[in-house]
């Protein structure tokens, strides 16, 4: 795989190292000359010093043959420009951008970036999940939001507790894809009983999500 990474700092360094150890062909584009020089000595990668949103620099970095371009700078506008130029001018099939303002995650996807991720969002999600503050964690939209995967905690005494999955009339657009119980993962069948304390992995179309939650937990989303 041929990967071009545009950015700076530790994230770029460790990613480049990991990619190189996986055998990817890595090219780094770094704007700061001193950092570029120092990285070129420490990482098994081709290092270019320049502005990653300059079409010439991207071309020189091999954008025409790249499989993925990753933009990790601290400025959302630069990451967007890198991805759009890579995709539009050089037909790079996949682009990945770091989004600093979490609200831009959706904007980036709408503007043609294949994967936009926000570290703020990721950390917030991990916190919610680990701390168990929330009964619902990890609401992940897939396929442009046409399906979501979510993790829902089942409390003792919830309507679905101590019932076999078969006995629940879940809508057609939803299913329980997995149960996390005492650290184990159970792939449920119709005769699997749900228990209080389970965490259910629910795969659902957004329009039936509310109904599923009500059937399982008795609560509104």
């Amino acid at each position: 795989m041929r990967v071009i990474v545009v950015g700076a700092g530790k994230l770029l360094y460790y990613l480049a190292r990991q990619f190189a150890s996986k055998g990817y062909v890595v090219t780094l584009v770094i704007s700061d000359a001193t950092e570029a020089l120092s990285l070129s000595r420490r990482v098994k990668a081709l290092v270019l010093q320049g502005n990653g949103s300059d079409p010439h620099v991207l071309e020189e970095a091999g954008a025409r043959r790249a499989d993925v371009v990753v933009a990790l700078t601290a400025k959302d506008q630069d990451n967007l420009a890198v991805c759009q130029i890579a995709h539009r001018m050089f037909r790079v099939p996949r682009t990945v951008a770091l989004v600093n303002d979490p609200q831009n995650e959706e904007v980036f996807r709408e503007l043609g970036v294949s994967v936009a991720f926000s570290s703020t969002q990721i950390i917030a999600r991990i916190l919610e999940e680990r701390a168990g503050f929330e009964d619902i964690a990890n609401l992940i939209p897939l396929a442009e939001g046409r399906v979501t995967i979510s993790e829902v905690a089942l409390r003792e005494g919830a309507p679905a507790a101590n019932k076999p999955l078969r006995a629940l009339t879940l809508p057609e657009g939803a299913l329980v894809g997995g149960i996390l119980r005492n650290g184990d993962v159970i792939v449920p069948r119709g005769d699997t009983f749900l228990r209080g304390g389970d965490r259910l992995i629910i795969i659902s179309r957004p329009d039936c999500y509310d109904r599923v939650l009500r059937i399982l937990t008795g609560e509104e989303a």
Partner: peptide, 16 residues
């Protein structure tokens, strides 16, 4: 003064 800012803002204005 920044091309990338102008282009991003312009696209958000148009699309969103």
């Amino acid at each position: 003064e920044e091309d990338n800012v102008n282009l991003m803002v312009a696209q958000v204005a148009r699309k969103v």
